[in-house]
Amino acid sequence: MANHPGVIHFVPGCHAPHTNVHISSLRCSKQVQLGVIVKFYLLGPLRVTDGECTVTPAAPRLRSVLALLLLHNDHVVSPELIDEELWPHDRPVNSRTAVRTYVYQLGKLFNRAHTLFTVEPNGYAAHAKWHELDITEFELLASSGRHALEEGRVRDGSATLRQALRLRSGATLSDVPHGPVLGPLVEAVEADVHTVEALTAAAVGPAPFAN
């Protein structure tokens, strides 16, 4: 496949061009253009897919920035908050430059189908669509399921709640270190999941996933 200007190509086992990001797993037999069908999975180990390919960044701090931005999807995250997560004790003098570089790398990796990661006047933001982020899907399904139960539609409600729980593959961001910022966010997500599990169990029996 010929290279085209402005398009980032990846070859299995190689580093991402123009970044120092290593693609942790790329199960494809051909070069891949990122961002065509991007999906971010946080309800379990961190995973990013592009169609049939797994394109999850491997660099630890880049993974933390990715998780932090996605947990604040469509909201601006300040540089101070990212600094606190990445360097809670000994912050380097060039921390702001490093953070900007991480977000730039995320843009290089994933801003293909549309602008997923942006630099804002007071920070940075992720703009994943509802079908690109499993947590957003979970929240929509959980809300719909609760509403159905409140209306007395137990069968519909429990089925929708089970559909939400099937999005989960393990503990939230189980392979990403939780610092002082990510930790409480992950705990809040886990609390929401356990609430949905309890609602499902009360309606029809044990949920399909439990710790």
Rank of each mutant, 00 (worst) to 15 (best):
A2E: 11
N3S: 11
H4E: 14
V7Q: 10
V11L: 12
G13A: 00
C14Q: 15
C14M: 10
C14W: 12
A16C: 13
N20L: 11
N20S: 10
V21P: 06
S24F: 13
S25T: 08
C28Q: 08
C28R: 06
C28W: 02
C28T: 10
K30L: 13
K30R: 15
Q31M: 14
Q33T: 14
V36Y: 06
V36I: 09
V36L: 03
I37T: 10
I37K: 10
K39S: 05
Y41K: 10
L43D: 10
G44Y: 12
R47N: 04
V48G: 07
V48I: 13
V48S: 08
T49V: 06
G51V: 00
E52R: 09
C53P: 01
A58F: 10
A58W: 09
A58M: 09
A59V: 03
R63E: 00
V65Q: 02
A67C: 15
L68R: 02
L69G: 03
N73G: 04
D74H: 13
V76K: 00
P79R: 04
P79Q: 02
L81M: 11
D83L: 10
E84L: 13
E84D: 13
L86D: 09
W87R: 11
P88H: 08
D90L: 08
R91A: 10
P92M: 06
S95W: 08
S95R: 06
V99T: 07
V103K: 03
Y104W: 14
Q105A: 03
L106A: 03
F110R: 01
F110M: 00
F110V: 03
N111D: 08
L116Y: 09
L116N: 12
N122S: 15
G123Y: 01
Y124I: 00
A126C: 07
K129S: 11
W130D: 15
L133E: 07
T136V: 14
E139Q: 10
L140D: 09
L141Q: 12
R146H: 08
H147V: 07
A148R: 12
E151C: 11
E151V: 10
V154F: 14
R155S: 12
R155A: 14
D156P: 08
S158L: 00
T160F: 00
R162S: 03
R166H: 15
R166Q: 13
R168I: 15
S169V: 08
T172H: 02
L173N: 07
S174M: 02
S174P: 03
D175W: 07
D175T: 08
V176F: 11
P177V: 02
H178T: 11
G179H: 05
V181E: 09
A188F: 04
A191T: 09
A191K: 06
V193Q: 00
H194T: 14
V196K: 02
E197T: 11
L199H: 05
V204A: 11
A210H: 15
A210V: 13
A210W: 15
